[in-house]
């Protein structure tokens, strides 16, 4: 023990060990391997991010140099009805779709966790929709949901229901986009499944002995133990839901048909930049979105201290 203490003390006070020739070579190689990624991060993420903050304060029509206009683009956002409509639609989409997505993904993961035979097959099947391009998936959904000739409405009518005009009725269209977004759940499900499979066997068995009721175990053992995965899926889900774009563009075009019901924030941003060539305005929208999502994420992390439990956590 004394020897160990001595060694520790000696280690703490000794000067940093200089790298030998071989060590320096390793470090150089490591740096070289990391270099492409660092260059990519700098060129394609950090510089564009900083440029976005700058362009947001300019009138920039892509062709020609940007002209400084101060906060004019933010002021224009404030009075733009399309921006407010899209912000409202996007908030609604996020608030509704993220919790539903989490619940369904957790349900699927719980089912998959019980499957012993063909588990690899089922995991692949649930992951497959994620691999389909969003444009193709959206078009398939649009064909399925065609008012009179679509298979979904034909089936619903055969069962005696009065189906909605999924993508034609402004009251139903946003819900249809939410429905569409629930389809590729593979990533969330696999993350939950990873968490479920990391729950120690002895804890699980002890919970079974303490209470025969399955939901007790789910609420008091399973959910707390996979809360880091819930946090991860929640944060990623919120970030993605505020950036919903492809499905909205395919379904509603740049005007958010029908009657702006599917007009999302990113669609307004995209059309400002690439349809109206008002890049300064689009950059201002991007900046506001960035700040908004950042604040929301920080808020979630702040509240996470009270409901996320990490293994070995003393609380």
């Amino acid at each position: 023990m004394a020897i160990l203490a001595k060694e520790n003390t000696a280690g703490a006070s000794s000067p940093p060990r200089r790298l030998g020739l071989a060590g320096r070579g390793e470090a150089r190689a490591g740096f070289l391997f990391a270099l492409p990624w660092m260059v990519g991060l700098t060129v394609f993420t950090i510089i564009p991010l900083l440029l976005t903050f700058y362009i947001a304060q300019t009138k920039f029509q892509i062709v020609g140099p940007p002209k400084y206009v101060g906060l004019a683009n933010y002021a224009a956002m404030w009075i733009d009805p399309a921006m407010w409509t899209s912000a409202r639609n996007t908030m609604f989409f996020a608030v509704v779709s993220v919790p539903i997505k989490l619940v369904i993904a957790l349900g699927l993961a719980l089912l998959l966790n019980r499957v012993t035979a063909l588990s690899g097959f089922y995991r692949t099947v649930f992951y497959l929709p994620f691999l389909m391009p969003a444009v193709a998936g959206s078009i398939v959904f649009m064909l399925l949901l065609t008012p009179d000739a679509g298979p979904v409405n034909i089936a619903l009518k055969a069962l005696g229901f009065s189906p909605p005009d999924w993508l034609l009725d402004p009251k139903a269209a946003l819900w249809t986009i939410i429905l569409l977004s629930l389809w590729p759940l593979g990533v969330e499900t696999l993350v939950f499944l990873g968490g479920l499979q990391n729950i120690p066997q002895d804890v699980s068995e002890a919970a079974d002995l303490d209470s025969p009721r399955g939901w007790h175990k789910l609420v008091w053992i399973t959910i707390p133990l996979i809360s880091p995965m819930i946090l991860f899926n929640l944060v990623i889900g919120i970030i993605y839901s505020f950036q919903v774009f492809t499905q909205a563009l395919v379904v509603g075009g740049t005007t958010g048909k029908p009657a702006e019901a599917t007009l999302m924030y990113m669609v307004v941003l995209y059309r400002a930049a690439f349809r109206y060539f008002n890049v300064g305005y689009a950059a201002a929208m991007a900046t506001v979105l960035f700040v908004g999502v950042l604040l929301l994420t920080l808020l979630i992390f702040r509240t996470a201290r009270s409901w996320v439990h990490y293994e070995g956590d003393s609380r």
Partner: peptide
């Protein structure tokens, strides 16, 4: 909606979104 549910009366081409 009644019109759009009944068919593609907008132009002379099939509607790529609905297949009508």
């Amino acid at each position: 909606n009644l019109i759009d549910r009944s068919g593609n009366f907008r132009d002379g081409y099939a509607d790529g979104n609905t297949g009508m």
